[in-house]
Simulated assay, not measured.
Amino acid sequence: MNVATILKAKGSDVATVNPALTLAEAARLLTERGIGAVVVMEGRRVIGILSERDIVKAVARGGAEALKAPVRDVMTARVVTCSLNDSVDELMDAMTEGRFRHLPVVEDGELAGIVSIGDVVKHRIAETVMETEALRLYIATG
């Protein structure tokens, strides 16, 4: 199973923001959409990612005043991305190693979607269930 399979099931809609947006506005967007991260774009180019963790860290450092800061000041600028052909195992490795929960999907230089750790776990469980059922069927008919 790969990223393309995940996006086919969940869709390729991605919440994006401009780097000048305030943290308060970005937090509101996360809450309204029920998501944990937004991709920060300048034109059609991915320049960062802003997660709930980034906002919590900013507030811990600067108090409520931090919510007036622009996203560009708090976002993670070194964005790790994946491609449509990356496997679920590759995603799990990247997320575990980098200790992050969201990977923007970039294909041919364009944002094609986003994958969360929840998406990865859901599809890995489904894959495991299918393998188990195939083995049960093999044993029962063998």
Rank of each mutant, 00 (worst) to 15 (best):
A66H: 04
I114R: 00
D54M: 08
L30T: 01
E131S: 12
R53Y: 07
R61N: 09
A112H: 07
G48A: 08
V56E: 01
V121N: 11
G113N: 03
A66I: 01
V80M: 12
M75V: 03
I125S: 02
A126T: 10
L50T: 04
L30H: 01
E42H: 08
E32T: 09
T132N: 13
M130I: 00
R136C: 06
R33S: 04
R136D: 02
V121E: 10
G36C: 03
E97V: 14
H123K: 09
A126W: 02
E127C: 01
M41E: 11
V121L: 13
G63H: 04
S51V: 03
T132V: 10
I114Q: 11
R78L: 04
I125T: 10
V80W: 05
M41T: 10
A77N: 06
I55W: 07
E110F: 07
G48L: 06
E107M: 01
F100Q: 02
A37H: 06
V120P: 06
A66W: 00
A58V: 00
L67K: 02
E107C: 04
T31Q: 08
I125V: 15
V105P: 10
E127M: 13
L103V: 04
G63F: 09
C82W: 03
V88L: 15
E25W: 00
A94L: 15
D89F: 13
R33K: 15
R136F: 02
I35L: 10
V106E: 11
M41K: 06
A126H: 12
G98T: 09
L135F: 10
L50I: 02
R61K: 13
V129T: 12
T76P: 00
V71L: 02
L84N: 12
T132D: 00
A134L: 08
R124P: 01
G48R: 02
E133T: 03
G34Y: 01
R45N: 13
S51D: 01
D119S: 07
E127G: 06
E107K: 12
S51Y: 00
V40T: 07
R53H: 01
G118Q: 09
E133Q: 15
R45T: 14
V46I: 14
A77C: 04
G98S: 14
M130A: 15
E32K: 13
F100C: 06
G34M: 09
L111C: 08
V80R: 12
V121T: 11
R78C: 00
V38C: 07
K68G: 13
E65Q: 13
T81L: 06
R28C: 00
V88F: 07
A112N: 02
E133M: 13
A77R: 13
M92N: 09
G118P: 12
G34Q: 03
A58W: 03
R45F: 00
K57M: 12
R101E: 06
G48I: 07
T96L: 12
R124K: 15
D73R: 14
I125L: 15
A66R: 07
T132E: 05
L67R: 10
C82E: 04
E32H: 03
V74F: 08
T76D: 01
E131K: 14
I55R: 04
V59G: 11
R78A: 08
D108M: 07
V80G: 05
R72K: 13
M95F: 09
G98H: 15
T81M: 11
A64D: 10
I49Q: 05
